[in-house]
Amino acid sequence: MLNLVLPLAFTLVALAVAMNFWRLIRGPSLPDRILALDTLYVNTIALLVLLGIHLASALYFEAALLIALMGFVGTVALCKYLLRGDIIE
């Protein structure tokens, strides 16, 4: 049963990533693009976890944890830039 569900899950998450890319390219505003990046990293964590189950290897958690940390810091930094950049000008 797992053999059946895993490819389906991979397909769904991959489609989600594709839609994130579409929003990233299309915009139309900067916060939209940041939101797309934010969702992209969360979906990447989902893909990595699925890959970990598929390959039955626990190694991918370190990567998932690192992506979660870096992604959050990146989102916060970009938002801060949007909030502060205007004030300094």
Partner: peptide
């Protein structure tokens, strides 16, 4: 749910 979330985004 991951798919639906991204669908909402798009």
């Amino acid at each position: 749910f991951t798919f639906i979330g991204s669908l909402g985004l798009a």
